[in-house]
Design a binder for these strands. Structure first.
Lengths: 196, 196
DNA sequence: GTCTATACCGCGATAGAC
DNA sequence: GTCTATCGCGGTATAGAC
């Protein structure tokens, strides 16, 4: 008969992360106290410090995990023939992936200014990596003449802003299914860059 | 010989508003203290309460003033013949107006969740009014067949997200002049809605 | 691993002198 | 109109019992 671990032992860490993410998304990092997070999890405030050295690191870990998951999921997409097909794949992936992670997306965008400089730089680099993958598609399209893009950098930022904007209004069970939304946005994206 | 007013008297109010706007934009409403605002203005914390009943009202007043200025400036645009011309006018106006007020735009978007319910509703209504003016253009274009828009509501939100996104990267004196940026975005907008 | 208790600080807001 | 001083609260983080 070995030791019996407290059943909540290794579920506490993810529960802290989930509670923190939800509360940060809802009220903002600065407005949420460690006491609130602890209460949501059902532990005392001091217990949180067994799982994170401080509040700032908790925020950073959440944002970093989100960005890494985004990069990994995008990298795992099946290869795609042709620039226009790759652009459609990116468009649909971006909408689908972000819609399924509304809290993480919101926090990772809104709380950038609350990151300490070194942490900010790390997250920014990951975001930039993701943007570069879209810009690479647009540049290929420009080179081979299958897209009309006046400025690939601006087009990249414009498209990502447009696509991420879906998160400000999309709710599951609303007027339109996610597949329909993807289709409508793909139509606008395709036209915006003069594809087809 | 009348009373001599303290020279700083009626400049204190705008200076408080400017300091608060700048600090809220940089660090977030919840992260900024009344003491910080006071320090920036060069008065004691208690003095702020001569000009605002509380911190929440200060935030709300800043956001409301920004939204009202936006609606007024848009309403003052010269009348425009034709749907496509109106859309171009809106596009250029939106970019120009928002680029010149980066702090107010940022605060008005990021701090919505820190508004008390009644204040939130008031700001949301103004934002909705502005969106409706763009949607009206798109609907007119759809009716007369000069635009191709699969869903006017989604297209409205997509275009506004795209245009407001300029504020995340545009800085005066950068690679591109604002007029050039306007032109590039108008090109993308025009194509996205199938105009011309 | 979680608890209670607490150190230490800074917050929003107010009172009353000048 | 601005100041100093302060109230009462809640913040992050830590110490030490169990």
């Amino acid at each position: 008969m070995g030791r019996t671990k407290n059943s909540s032992a290794e579920t506490t860490r993810p529960r802290i992360r989930e509670a923190a993410l939800r509360l940060f998304a809802r009220h903002g990092y600065a407005a949420v106290s460690m006491r609130q997070i602890a209460k949501e999890v059902g532990v005392q405030a001091g217990t949180l410090y067994l799982y994170t050295p401080d509040k700032q690191t908790l925020l950073f870990d959440l944002m970093q995990a989100h960005m890494q998951e985004l990069l990994d999921a995008h990298a795992a997409l099946p290869p795609c023939p042709g620039v226009v097909a790759r652009l459609e794949q990116f468009t649909r992936f971006h909408i689908r992936h972000h819609a399924a992670r509304a809290d993480a997306v919101f926090v990772s965008y809104m709380e950038l200014r609350n990151l300490e400089p070194a942490n900010f730089a790390a997250i920014e680099a990951m975001r930039r990596t993701y943007e570069d993958r879209l810009e690479a598609i647009l540049r290929d399209g420009l080179t081979q003449g299958s897209l009309h893009v006046p400025d690939t950098k601006l087009a990249t930022l414009a498209l990502i802003a447009m696509l991420t904007g879906v998160n400000t209004w999309y709710r599951e069970g609303g007027r339109l299914s996610l597949a329909t939304v993807e289709g409508i946005y793909w139509d606008m994206v395709r036209r915006a860059v003069g594809a087809g």
